[in-house]
Design a protein around this nucleic acid. Structure first.
Length: 272
DNA sequence: CGACAATGAAAAA
DNA sequence: TTTTCCTTGTCGC
């Protein structure tokens, strides 16, 4: 379940459970065994997220060793109270101490990196709406000069970090923007509104650990519709609602393949 | 730009 | 058993 809000929430949760402790570090699955041996019983001193990248900092007296984690499409993290169960052989990384454990499985990346390597990752990522140091103008600089569709640009982590397939579909709907509009046809005011909305939506996503994008006036209760039956847990306008009636205009939500990703939008509410 | 792999689990068939 | 997925790097045209 990885978009940026998930990763920022994980940074918080890793910190809450393990910051300042020196947990046992293991890699039952084996792919991270060498690094795990180096980190075993080292103090976790920092956790950080940038876009969909998670960083766990260990030791940090002279130099910090960083574990770089990217969940990819189906990486998952699970926290639990001690005693930790016998690890399944799919657990890439386990931290465990007296009272808690956390398991990571199926990540696209889990590697021990240096501070310089970490910086290189920051350098190739665009501004992240969830980070205080983010500069939305840097993103707009690229958007406003691109002939690529705004839907593709929102997914380009070099342009803006942390937005995934759900947030891009939802934020474009909320602003009535056709996903196929070219980046250079997005006005500064529109970009500012998109950015501010992403900041608010993603912060709420971190808080609730799920994506909700439907405004109060469009909830099922407010619209007199039957309660939502949804497999995702969150309340959304268009994501994975192909052929279902739009919550606002009642027209059919459309879907299309865009660079191997499923795009969803309401052609009536989102005009070219 | 499209195809595909990597790698795990849950949902759909 | 097959498909799908809130990702992305790489390969080939």
């Amino acid at each position: 379940m990885p978009e940026g809000h998930t990763i920022h929430r994980l940074a918080q949760d890793y910190a809450a459970a393990f910051l300042g402790t020196a947990p046992r570090v293991t890699s039952p699955q084996g792919k991270f065994s060498d690094a795990a041996a180096l980190l075993d019983r080292a103090a976790l001193t920092r956790t950080e997220a940038h876009g969909k990248h998670l960083f766990l900092g260990f030791r940090g007296f002279h130099a910090t060793d960083w574990v770089h984690i990217h969940l990819g499409l189906f990486g998952k993290v699970g926290f639990g109270a001690a005693p930790a169960p016998p690890p399944a052989d799919t657990v890439r990384l386990r931290l465990a101490h007296r009272t808690a454990y956390v398991d990571l499985r199926g990540p696209a990346a889990c590697a021990l990196i240096t501070g310089a390597e970490k910086q290189a990752i920051h350098d190739r990522l665009g501004p992240d709406p969830l980070r205080e140091d983010a500069d939305p103008d840097r993103a707009y600089h690229r958007v406003s000069r691109s002939r690529t569709t705004v839907a593709a640009l929102l997914m380009d982590q070099k342009v803006i970090a942390g937005v995934g397939n759900v947030y891009r579909a939802e934020v474009l709907f909320r602003h009535g923007i056709d996903p196929y509009r070219a980046g250079r046809d997005i006005t500064p005011a529109q970009w500012d509104a998109l950015w501010q909305d992403l900041v608010a939506l993603m912060r709420e996503g971190v808080r609730n650990n799920r994506i909700d994008t439907v405004r109060p006036e469009h909830t099922p209760e407010a619209m007199g519709r039957p309660p939502r039956v949804d497999d995702h847990g969150g309340e959304v306008y268009v994501y994975r609602r192909a052929n279902l009636p739009c919550h606002v205009c009642g027209g059919a939500i459309r879907t299309a393949d865009l660079a191997a990703r499923n795009l969803f939008w309401c052609p009536n509410c989102q005009r070219p």
